[in-house]
Design a protein around this nucleic acid. Structure first.
Lengths: 121, 121
DNA sequence: TTCCTTTTAGTAGATGATCTATGGGAGTAC
DNA sequence: GTACTCCCATAGATCATCTACTAAAAGGAA
């Protein structure tokens, strides 16, 4: 049964941020899908969950935009795996999206702090 | 002509945050749609833009969930206007969504700081 | 009255990211 | 050869947002 009417912010991801998270993960070096998802979940202390149904479409659209490139290889577990690496274009995009992310967070936080006294910084 | 293939984070809003922004705006007192949009834009230093096509559907779904309630009144410009106010349920939801927002931002930022030296705390 | 502008509310249709729920191939262990 | 895990992949649905539009009501000009 599909989950009904989950209110905003209740998903496992903030819509629009997965691409950014993937690009950042690949800064550390090439990785395949499974590893990328795992890395994001671990780094976020399991707050973010990356479903396969979100991950692979995201990887494919990033490759379509030439922000990442793929090649076949063999995983640590001796499985055939498609590895992704960051392209120069992707590196530029990462910088761009990171500063856009920061800008949006600052903007939203300005609205959220409206009329409230800041508690503990 | 529709804008083509805008990459993530390039919209005027981060998907999922509009409800939160509206609820927060109404903490200051009842307001009608036009005023709410204007307040969000101003408070965010015009980084966030609230389109009518996003605003009214959002107001209606918030009212459906009983997080806000509406009444007809007269605007500062002597126009008929539908005013919205926060309900007790909405106030609870605001607290909930605010902490969820903070949690997600912290989680994403942990991933984004991967392998980088933290600047200024 | 008619015409035009401003203010405010609203909807229709498209887009696009994410989620649920699958399927399938290829190693590994038994 | 059966079972299990790892890895890739897609179809269909859901839902928020954006573009582009309609429309009502008030005020001013003529």
């Amino acid at each position: 049964m599909p989950k009904k009417g989950s209110p905003p912010l209740e998903g496992e991801l903030l819509q629009g941020t997965l691409d950014l998270l993937i690009l950042q993960t690949l800064v550390l070096g090439p990785a395949h899908g499974h590893t990328i998802a795992y890395a994001i979940e671990r780094r976020s202390d399991d707050v973010l969950q990356v479903e396969h149904g979100s991950l692979y479409p995201a990887l494919h659209r990033l490759e379509d935009r030439a922000w990442i490139a793929s090649f076949w290889g063999t995983s640590e577990n001796n499985r055939k795996a498609r590895y992704y690496r960051l392209t120069p274009k992707g590196r530029k995009q990462l910088l761009h999206q990171t500063s856009r992310w920061d800008e949006l967070v600052r903007a939203i936080n300005r609205v959220l702090r409206t009329g409230k006294t800041t508690v503990s910084g």
